[in-house]
């Protein structure tokens, strides 16, 4: 398998594919350097002390290493995949029981379709841009929602503008995602 450097992918995606396809430790170390501070910040924001937060970081990063085969850059960006692992792990630790998870889709490991990855990355770029452009209080609302600091009824009551903005961005990616997932079923 050849891997020409592909400038259309983010660094994180290239590192993650190197980990997935070649068990590349240098790439993994880069992923660690990128995500560990963010993961620790998220865990501490969720109320864990520094030591427990680092347990979460270690656990999440090792899951990234061991479950790399499940990463599909055409379906979700690295950050979404890491986010999902981290939320699960943090909640399992806090509640001392496993959170119900959807069935995994059984997929054939396939060569990454660069065009599709590029489209996904573009989508994520839009999403990050939309987040950055939100008014501070709206942005805080979104942050709180995805950091697990708002209940369902609070999110429902506050959907107003902010979640709407995110949603309109999210929706752009849905048609393709839907298509992808239908193919997999």
């Amino acid at each position: 398998m050849t891997h020409p450097p592909d400038t259309s992918m983010t660094d994180a995606t290239r590192w993650m594919l190197a980990v997935r396809d070649r068990r590349d430790r240098t790439a993994f170390a880069r992923l660690y350097d990128h995500f560990a501070p963010r993961l620790k910040g998220m865990a501490m924001r969720g109320g864990l002390n520094a030591a427990l937060a680092e347990d979460v970081v270690q656990d999440v990063m090792l899951t990234v290493w061991h479950k790399a085969a499940q990463f599909d850059p055409g379906v979700a960006p690295v950050s979404a995949w890491v986010y999902r692992i981290a939320r699960n792990r943090q909640i399992d630790m806090a509640r001392k029981r496993a959170r119900p998870l959807p069935e995994e889709l059984i997929e054939e490991a396939s060569e990454p379709d660069t065009q599709q990855i590029y489209a996904m990355e573009q989508e994520v770029g839009f999403l990050q841009g939309a987040l950055a452009k939100l008014a501070p209080e709206q942005r805080q609302m979104i942050e709180k929602a995805y950091m697990g600091e708002l209940s369902h009824s609070e999110i429902q009551a506050e959907t107003g503008l902010a979640l709407g903005t995110i949603k309109s961005r999210i929706r752009l990616g849905l048609e393709r995602l839907r298509h992808e997932l239908k193919e997999l079923r």
């Binding site: 993961l39 910040g41 998220m42 950050s79 995949w81 986010y83 999403l127 990050q128 979104i142 942050e143």
Partner: peptide, 15 residues
Amino acid sequence: HESAGGAVLEALPGA
């Protein structure tokens, strides 16, 4: 939604 969560994670001030 997980992608939105990932975008928030990316923008988070780290520790």
